[in-house]
Amino acid sequence: MANSGTQSRKYRLQGAGLDLALPYLMLAPGLLIVLGVLVYPLWDGLRASTKVYRYGSVVADVGMQNYIKLWSDPQFLNSLWVTVEFVALSVTFEAILGFALALFCLREFRGIRLLRTILIIPMVITPVVVAIVFRLIYASDAGMLTAISEWMGGGQVQILGSPVKAFIGLVVLDVWEWTPLMFLILLAGLQSLPHEPFEAARVDGAGNWRVFADLTFPMMRPVLAIAIVLRTIDAFGTFDQVFVLTRGGPGEATRLVSIYGYDTAFKFQQTGYAAALFVTIGLVVLALAFSAVRLLRRVDAS
């Protein structure tokens, strides 16, 4: 016993130097990649946002001027408003639909596994492909909606040409594509709830609605909040579907900040201004996420 004790101590002493360095050595590759693809671009973007570019080269250093200009730019303010509307509408519908589907799929019946699998398919399709398909559905000349309308004796259906309808069409696309994510998170949340309190409530006299209102919903609130925060952050950056479906049009009806930023950077070559725009959006989303998490904690603690 004593012999093996001294022996292991000797090994430990021999390996002490390596033991200390090993964690850092193993972290180094990952750390370098993070520095290279995350930290440096972020820092470079911040630096770019204080400058004015012309044809790709810096012509002036303007400090915070780009940021100040944003708040008197009607196109930016409009795109911000469109984005907020888009996010609020989409995420609300996704949360409600996702919760309803998750509650439905919690039951066990024949074919439930297949149904759950089918329900998450939209999420795994490439967004651009989804947008192309929806474009084909919405197209006024040979689209699916027009075909159905004509079959029923109606005329052409104009979706993408009308500002309001195009916006609604975009929300429908987003809801179709991302409700499955909500569904998946909420289903996992529902499945992880303890089932005894629900049985206790049934014995105590609660009907289905009261069980939902008094138990399911309060117990699911943290999960629901996390799902909404995740989806909100994600929806703020929506780009590809809009780019394919409407390019922000008609007019500015579907021009989200991401599209406006893209146009500013690559159409109008205002690289510095676009950088300031995206930094601002990043900060807005960050603030949103922080306040949501704080709110969540306060609700949880009370």
């Binding site: 005894e196 309190p197 049985e199 206790a200 409530a201 009907g207 138990l215 117990m219």
Partner: peptide, 21 residues
């Protein structure tokens, strides 16, 4: 009958308290 119509009270092994209340 449904549990709530049976006029019984039950104590569970895991207590089954309502966590949010």
């Amino acid at each position: 009958l449904q549990p709530r119509d049976r006029d019984i009270a039950m104590v569970f092994q895991s207590y089954a308290l309502y966590p949010q209340m």
